[in-house]
Design a protein around this nucleic acid. Sequence first.
RNA 1: GCCCUCAUCGUCUAGAGGCCUAGGACGCCAGCCUUUCAAGCUGGAGAUCAGGGGUUCGAAUCCCCUUGGGGGCACCA
Length: 495
Amino acid sequence: MVTDTYSQVRVRFAPSPTGFPHVGNIRTALFNWLFARRYGGIFILRIEDTDTARSVEGAVESIQDGLRWLGLDWDEGPVFQSERLQLYRDGAEALVRSGRAYHCFCSPERLQAVREEQTRNHLPPRYDGHCRELSAAEVERRLAAGETAVVRFKTPLSGETGVRDLIRGEVVFSNANLNDYVLMKSDGYPTYHLANVVDDHDMGITHVMRADEWISSTPLHVMLYDSFGWEPPQFAHLPMILGPDKAKLSKRHGATTISEYRDQGYLPEAMVNFLALLGWSLDDKTDLLSREELVANFSLERIGKTAAVFNKPKLDWMNGVYIRALSPGEFARRALPYLERDLPADIGRPLNIDYVASVARLVQERAKKLDELADLCEFFFRNELSYPCEDLLVKGMEAALAREILNRVSLVVPTEQDWSAVSLEEAVRPLSDDMGVSTKQLFGTLRVAMTGRTAAPPLFETMEVLGRERCMSRLAHAVQLVERQHPELASGTGT
RNA sequence: GCCCUCAUCGUCUAGAGGCCUAGGACGCCAGCCUUUCAAGCUGGAGAUCAGGGGUUCGAAUCCCCUUGGGGGCACCA
């Protein structure tokens, strides 16, 4: 049984609170979560807040909100690295003691100058090893004198470091191309590399699943595990998610922050399904998978290697599929907050949930996103409709005919007690033959009078929901509109 | 500039030597349904598998080169 090979699975999602999570981050979280759930493992949330300068207010909350929204529950955490500083300091110290790391006193200015020189000479920008061989005595003296220092990893000058990646296979880096990376910053905080490795080991992480952009720093991590004498976890570098221009996802691609998708009315289950398919696939024909099916089938073997462009039209389609699959009651429940938010302010609040439910039924299969709802059904909530008179004149009909249609309809329409879509249709449809008018024209004119638009939900069901009183007043209003626009009708030719 | 990496329809992808005259999905186009819009159904266009060399009886699938894309090269993660 597969479960046995992975019985100890412990994975983590480790974002840094330097901004709000975007779909790329969340996709990484999702894969980790799916992997944990698939093999009965533990999913941990760890906040990598070691950059005091770049940390953003509210970021931690928005990360948690995003995960909760999508139902990606974590078993441990959030663990904050800022609360574990001693652990990293001890680690750095141990490395210095064992000669795998050293103190560096170079000023930012000097480093800058070195880098510029290297760039000028078309050399890769790297630390030049200025402090690499300082004597222990000198280091001690300068430290005692209060000089600020960082701790750098003493990367071997020769040899190679191999990274075994579950998705990429073996990736080899030659040490000469690697840098003497900073492990501890002068402010006493660890860099990502140190904190990440120390924590992954300390927390017993078995699989590191992260975006592909990290692979080039993985040899350092491998060397760190080795220097500490620790067994490294398994690595799986996930293909990146790109914007439509095939560049790394960023703000300029528009909506990328996960909360924006919620605000626009994407369903979490659709989002999960869609994101899962960015870099992973089940087979050659399945693209609709429930959360349970995803969990049951997820596997590292079926993660691809190629970066994926975030393809919004497909997300929209998929969201529509999920919207239509909702029970009417559930749809109404989910639609309500969006209508409360998006309907014009002059429409009274709170909205009546029963009325919303009857309206929602009619627009459910017409929306791809919940934020389209207000526009789709605003006319259900208004008293006064406003639309151009010409819209009543379907297919170039005479104003007189439009007026006649409107008047005749108001005469045949059923009573309050009998007000239903079925009886409405029974009463109105015969008018088509009686008047020698096509149903297209008859219903078209009526539709505009009832909804103020040329495209709307089914006419009679709409009228049923609107109710007799509202329909009668809309008919009257439409007649008025025609007569006002066409004074020539005034001479009493009305029916 | 240096290092790593990827490469199948516009996009997401299936494909792990013969099942491929390359399959599915989105999008697009057409038709059907129909009182409009959707939804649904049916059909269609769309990839000489980046290009070039090999290996093999046989390659989208293996190897090499080229080209193109992406990522990385901070006291940021």
